Amino acid sequence: MVKIVISDPAEIIEQRIAEVAAYVNKSRRALVVTGAGISCSGGIPDFRSSDGLYNLVKARHPGTVLKGAELFDATLFKDVNRIKCFYTFMAELKTLVATAKPTPTHKFLRNMQESGRLLRLYTQNIDDLEAELDLPAVQLHGTMASVKCTLCSASYAFSKEYVDAFRQGEPPICPKCEAIGEERSLLGKRQLAVGTLRPDIVLYNEEHPNGDKIGLQQCSDIKRRPDLLVVLGTSLKIPALKKFVKLAARTVHNNKNGITILVNKTPPTKEWEHVFDYQIMGDTDEWVRMTEAKLEDKPCLTAAWSRIQQRLKQQQLQQHSNDDEDEKENQAAIRLKKAAANEATTKRKSTGQTTLDNYRVSKRALSTSKPPSTKKMK
C-alpha cells in the first residue's frame, strides 16, 4: 500500500498524486463508494462536534441518556423517550440537508459519469445530494428526501409540515392509514391499526427493504469486471459493505492495470492493508482538487503513466527472477532426494539387507512348500 498524506509538502506527494490521477484517467469501469466525509463541506457537519446534532438533541431531551449510535438503531422504537429523541434529531438533520449543497467531490463524480468512467456509485449517505446533480446512486442506507409509514410502507415527500412535527418529538399519523380508518368507520367496520411516519432510512439492526435488489446490482457490477475502486470519506465499518468492498477489490486486481484507492481523513485498520493500493489521508475535496489539476496536465499524466508501466515491468522481471530461483531450488532438492535414494539402494545391495518394502510373498511358494511334520515322537 502506498500512503499519501495530503498535508505533506507538494514535492513529496506530487508524483504519487499524479500516478493516482493517471489510473483514474485510464479507467473505464470505476466503482465508487462514498460516506459522510464527502458531504461535510456541503453544509452537513460532523454530528459529534461540540455544536453538532447529538449535543443539540441532548439539550432538548436532558432526561434521556442516549449515545449517538443509538439514534440510528432500530431498537430505539421500543422506548418512548428514545423515539422522541430520534424524531427531534431527524428534524434538525432534515433542516441541514435542505440547505446543503453538492461538494466538489460530488461534482467530480458527476464528471466521471459524463466522461464514461463511472460504472456505479454506492453511497452510505442519506442526504440525497447526488440527486441535485442528477447523479444516479445506489442508496445503501436510504434517503432523507422522503418519509414512509411504519405499517403500510406508504411513502411521502419529507415536507416542512413533517419536519415541524418531528421537531416536537411526535411521529405524524400516516395519511393512507388514516384514510382507510375513516372509510372503515363509515362502513361500520372495525378499526385497524394505524401507522406513523418515519424517515425513509435504514437503521442498524434493520433489514433494507431493497436489500435483494441492491445485492443483484452488486453482483451485476462485479461481473462487468471493474478496473478501478475508489472509496471516499468512510472508514468502512458496516459488515455488509466491507464484504462487498473486499470482493470488488479482488475483482479490480484481476485486471492488468486495476487499482484500489481509499481517501479518508482517518487511516484504515490493518484489515485493509492489502486491499487498497493507495491510501490517501486527507479531505476528499482537497484530493479532488489536486487530481483534477493533474487530469488537465496531459504531459504530467503521460509521464506518470510511463513511470507506472516501467515500475510494473521491473516488478514482473523481479517476479520472473524469483520464480526462476524457486525453480532452481526445487530442482536441486529433487536431485538431492534422488541421490539419497540411490545411495540407500546401493548400500542395501552391498550388505544383503532386505527391508519390508522389498519383501514379497509368492502364493506358489506357499502352496508347493511341504507342511511341517505332524508325526508324534515315540
Rank of each mutant, 00 (worst) to 15 (best):
L236I: 12
C177D: 14
F276W: 01
I334M: 11
E183F: 02
V2G: 04
L229D: 05
E183I: 04
E273G: 08
K265A: 06
L133M: 06
V5I: 08
T99V: 07
K338I: 12
R48D: 03
E178I: 00
S306G: 08
K176V: 10
T196R: 15
K313D: 06
V147C: 08
Q124K: 12
V202H: 05
D127W: 08
Q279K: 15
L216N: 11
E286Q: 15
C300T: 13
D323L: 12
L187Y: 00
I44Q: 07
L118I: 00
K337F: 01
G169M: 07
H208K: 08
T105K: 04
A21P: 12
K313P: 00
R190L: 10
K223S: 13
R335E: 15
T150M: 05
K176D: 10
A332E: 14
P199A: 09
T302W: 02
F86Y: 14
E182P: 01
D221W: 02
Y359A: 13
N264E: 05
K298Q: 12
G52D: 03
F166A: 09
G43N: 09
L96G: 05
L96W: 03
F276D: 05
A30F: 01
T284G: 09
Q113Y: 03
P226M: 02
E343T: 09
V361P: 05
S49F: 01
S306Q: 15
A341Q: 14
P268C: 08
R289D: 13
P45W: 01
L295F: 03
R348E: 10
H141D: 08
C149S: 11
A59N: 13
T269Q: 12
K101P: 00
P372A: 14
N254R: 15
V263H: 02
V80F: 02
T105L: 02
D326F: 03
N255D: 07
E14R: 15
N342W: 00
V5P: 02
A332W: 04
G181K: 13
T196S: 12
P172G: 10
S306W: 01
T355N: 09
E296R: 14
T88H: 08
D357T: 11
T266G: 02
L66C: 13
K363R: 15
L295C: 09
I44L: 09
Q139N: 12
L71P: 09
S39F: 04
T284M: 06
L301V: 03
A341V: 03
L76I: 10
V32H: 01
I17H: 07
L109D: 02
H61M: 11
H274K: 15
